[in-house]
Design a protein around this nucleic acid. Structure first.
Lengths: 252, 252
DNA sequence: CGTACTATTGAGCGCTCTCAAAACCAGTGG
DNA sequence: CCACTGGTTTTGAGAGCGCTCAATAGTACG
């Protein structure tokens, strides 16, 4: 992608498929030797099952986790069984970046379906990144990307209507699945309506009603957890419309 | 603060006051030599005035900015003059971390009042951090902290009522001012009601009404842009109440 | 002292939440 | 195979919070 003349893209991709580091090594100029060293510190993935925890709220931070297959949700549990879903993590995505600062996990990470997850001890990754400038650069980019992502979400939660939120959510899923070579229009949602609502700041009933409405309007087909996006452009229009129409606050 | 035995805290603080890097070197074990090298790459602050831009939406990313005095808002302009305020940045805080990934600023940064801002060319900071492991660590922490901050805000926007949002906003301001040794109970808001509302996802009128209500209830005194927090505990209670009462969604 | 802008206050409406009930699904055991 | 049970999803009706529209008041600046 960028200026990775050092080694062919395909080689890296293959190496990465082994080391399962996803975002960590894909778009950069690591030498084969670098990739090998990176590979060395990664703990191999063992299959995890629905309900398993990667880590829990309050545990001390040791490792980052990379989703190889399956999906994970992160959330902050509050007393009384209430919780706030922070995100859903699909294959290739990294979990735990928010805990580097305080060295304690502020959220819990729970596996949503049978998944393969790689663990990367952070202290070793940090060491390695200090010896490999391009890896350091990639780490900066990763962290920065996470900030951008949160910022985008902030915009959704702060300004958009229920309709716009669900459309944005579906398009986000679609886009991320496409990035991993999976179907961007036909997929299963591993999370419940309840979790989607919690994530988007909406009531379960609202989410349900919107799925029904979107289907009636021919934007998608939905059956249980299976979703098929039909009119992507219309969904895009719903999301974009918001930024144009609403909130034309002309601040000086 | 942490285990910075290498050099006395006071020495660092003084050095930092010069280099104006705020969060960058404060809580870590940089040697005097390190601090000096860090200081070398920082472009000195010249005074900026209300309405000046640090950077605009779409410009290519070159530097991070550290607020020395004053305040800055970041926001994403959309067509038609509408905009979404992403954050307000107080002394000691860093701006631009979200642009590292794509190397383009996705937002604009506008100065809210006469301010002193330092510019730190990122490429040189990156080089330096590669030679100074503790600086690299500090960078990781900084980026991670920004993620945590966004996550917290996400919770506010996704789940809290107008009342809870404004209380959270005021307490956030208070906490950050305290960190910089400024009064946590008596301060001026450099942003307009409009901008506060935009930031919190509320209408101007709602913000105004809430200020009035809070004052009537004896939680604070407000006169124009000057705010004096009187009952911090009550404000805390408003914010915390939310996580306990509402949204007791018992997800399996 | 007017002009433009920002902030405040009031009245009414709409979106989304809450409460309630029915439909649906998956797993278990008779 | 079917009834039973716990869970999730869907659907309906009503209420409340916060937005919109509109008007007034206060403030900064020339």
């Amino acid at each position: 992608m960028t200026e990775s003349k050092v080694i062919s893209f395909e080689t890296i991709r293959v190496a990465c498929r082994n080391c399962t580091l996803g975002a960590l090594c894909l778009p950069m100029g690591l030498t084969p030797d670098d990739v090998e060293r990176l590979d060395d510190i990664v703990k191999r993935a063992r299959p995890l099952h629905r309900g398993d925890f990667l880590f829990r709220n309050g545990q001390s931070f040791r490792s980052l986790y990379v989703v190889k297959t399956g999906s994970v949700k992160t959330y902050t549990p509050s007393e009384e069984g209430g919780e706030q879903v922070l995100g859903f993590h699909l294959p290739g995505e990294i979990i735990g970046l928010d805990a580097i600062d305080k060295e304690v996990h502020a959220c819990s990470a729970k596996v949503l379906e049978t998944s393969a997850i790689c663990e990367v001890p952070f202290s070793r990754l940090e060491e390695l990144s200090n010896r490999i400038p391009s890896l350091q650069h990639q780490m900066y980019r990763l962290l920065s990307k996470e900030i951008s992502h949160d910022t985008e979400l902030l915009l959704v939660l702060g300004k958009k209507s229920a309709e716009e939120r669900l459309a944005a959510f579906l398009l986000s899923m679609s886009k991320r699945l496409r990035q991993r070579g999976l179907s961007p229009t036909d997929f299963y949602l591993s999370m419940s309506r309840h979790e989607i609502g919690n994530y988007l700041g909406l009531a379960v009933e609202t989410v349900s009603r919107l799925f029904t409405r979107f289907q009636d309007e021919g934007l998608l087909k939905v059956d249980r957890k299976h979703v098929e996006l039909i009119d992507m452009e219309a969904l895009e229009a719903i999301v974009v419309r918001a930024t144009a129409d609403n909130h034309q606050q002309h601040l000086t």
